[in-house]
């Protein structure tokens, strides 16, 4: 990891957001729902990100909202990862109709458009909380990783050491836990990070169309109010810019971590493309001008 600046940058940024999620509500200068007489004020020293039409402090809303975003991302990511490992590894390891069935199941969940599915489920729920939203996202977003894991497991299953373990009569569970799983760590990690990103965007999108934790704040609810109160036509750019940038930054951090993992898994992607002014090219090997060493 230390030799991987992308992943390191991503991890540091990610750590920052997690820290905000923990301490954000204490750091917030105002109660995010508290109204005041400073209606629709642009950013100022007392309201860093300005105020809403009700005089609420947007800085506090974004700060407090971080917790919900990180919580939903983490819980949904965990649920989806556990499901994808269960389904994907079994589908790859089990032969015959059981494996085929599980693989078809994940393909079905993959092609059904995720967001509309999440919308119809969440809007049918009697009440929506951060937890239920996270669970719905987690229960619907596992298919992509399950597919990747199945493919990986299939190829691992044919490796010599796995065949050898099987020939030795080791139990299926031992083989999966000790021979296969350790080789899937990077893929699972990358899947987790990808799902967290998807969950964060989904939660914010849901909040933006009006499905969110009752009374709670997240970056999407900030945007929901900005949209429904016509922040745009009133020129109140401060109302939607901070929340959007926060999403983009968190998203970039997660993508960077995943790039790091990708490069770890696929060495061809590692940027050794130009070192010391020499451009590495396929088809035309660079020739050093002078003898080195």
């Amino acid at each position: 990891m230390r030799s991987n600046p992308k992943a390191l940058t991503g991890l540091v940024a990610l750590g920052f957001f997690v820290l905000l999620a923990v301490v954000g509500p204490w750091l917030a200068p105002f109660d995010p729902s508290m109204r005041s007489n400073d209606l629709l004020q642009p950013p100022s020293p007392s309201h860093w990100f300005g105020t809403t039409h009700l005089g609420q402090d947007i800085f506090s809303q974004v700060l407090v909202g971080t917790r919900s975003v990180v919580f939903v991302g983490a819980v949904a990511g965990l649920v989806a990862t556990v499901l994808s490992v269960l389904v994907g590894v079994s589908a790859g390891y089990l032969s015959g109709s059981a494996g085929e069935g599980l693989s078809a199941l994940s393909n079905v969940f993959l092609v059904i458009p995720a967001l509309p599915l999440i919308v119809i489920i969440t809007s049918s729920l009697p009440e929506t909380s951060n937890l239920t939203i996270a669970l719905v996202i987690g229960l619907t977003a596992w298919a992509w990783n399950a597919r990747v894991l199945r493919a990986q497991t299939l190829s691992l299953r044919r490796r010599d050491y796995v065949e050898a373990a099987r020939a030795n009569g080791e139990s299926t569970w031992r083989i999966i836990l000790f021979e296969i799983m350790p080789n899937l760590t990077a893929v699972i990690a990358s899947g987790f990070v990808g799902t967290v990103l998807f969950a964060v965007i989904s939660e914010i999108t849901l909040a933006f169309i009006g499905v969110s934790d009752a009374g709670g704040w997240n970056w999407g609810t900030v945007l929901y109010w900005a949209q429904s109160q016509q922040a745009l036509t009133q020129g109140a750019w401060w109302w939607f810019v901070p929340a959007g940038l926060a999403i983009a930054l968190l998203g970039t951090a997660l993508s960077l971590v995943n790039f790091g993992i990708d490069e770890y898994v696929n060495p061809r992607l590692r940027t050794r493309s130009s070192t010391r002014g020499v451009r590495m090219r396929v088809g035309f090997t660079p020739v050093l001008a002078k003898e080195s060493s």
């Binding site: 914010i204 983009a248 960077l256 090219r281």
Partner: peptide, 26 residues
Amino acid sequence: RGTWADSLIPVTTFVSSIPYFWLGLV
């Protein structure tokens, strides 16, 4: 790869992390 084109990668990473609807608002 290995030319100026590599510098597009961070930009596209950032853009692809922005939700579509927010870009619409902007």
